[in-house]
């Protein structure tokens, strides 16, 4: 087994900010975000692309699991993590809906789930229950049983489709 220490430079736009960082070639994106950039809202739950706790948004539209992408692979791309979605005093409608609908318990899956919801609603602004359940089937939650997550997605869709009805601002 070879131990690699080859360093590369990765340039990405994360949550609107341009960043250039050196990292080992083999650095997984999840750890690059968590350990080098302090974006600890990106969680790791499985290492095998199964749980989705590490989901981030690539180039504004594609939900990817950052535990199975090498950091150098996103060189030149744009990423959104939960830290860029909204803040406590300025929640994104998806975050607001998760809170309103009790769509989280331990909170570990929540950031990844919210970004998967954003990707889903960008593809399909008015999903049915079935489309929501299928659309989120790459993200595991062990606490909620998903029913309230489905409810939250409907609320978020409603507000994102009619932004004037809410004080929250969509991205």
């Amino acid at each position: 087994m070879a131990v690699s220490s080859t360093q590369v430079s990765v340039h990405v736009k994360i949550n609107g900010q341009e960043i250039t960082k050196e990292c080992e070639v083999r650095t997984l994106l999840a750890y690059f975000l968590r350990e080098q950039l302090g974006l600890t809202g990106v969680h790791v739950g499985c290492d095998t692309t199964s749980c989705g706790a590490c989901t981030v948004l690539l180039d504004g539209k594609t939900a990817i699991k950052s535990c199975t992408v090498f950091a150098p692979q996103v060189d030149g791309h744009e990423l959104l993590t939960v830290e860029g979605l909204g803040e406590a005093d300025h929640l994104h409608p998806i975050q607001q809906a998760f809170w309103d609908c009790h769509a989280l318990q331990c909170g570990y899956c929540t950031p990844g789930m919210e970004l998967a919801v954003l990707a889903l609603l960008q593809r399909n602004p008015n999903p049915t229950d079935e489309e929501i359940r299928f659309g989120l089937s790459g993200n595991l939650c062990r606490c909620t049983g998903y029913k309230n997550i489905v409810k939250a997605v409907h609320q978020a869709a409603e507000i994102m489709n009619h932004p004037s009805t809410s004080q929250s601002v969509t991205l």
Partner: peptide, 21 residues
């Protein structure tokens, strides 16, 4: 009542074990 702990979780500001350095 809506949960008091949620604002930190929905914004990715929870502090789990592996977040501590």
């Amino acid at each position: 009542m809506k949960r008091k702990e949620d604002p930190r979780f929905i914004t990715g500001q929870g502090r789990y074990l592996d977040d501590i350095v």
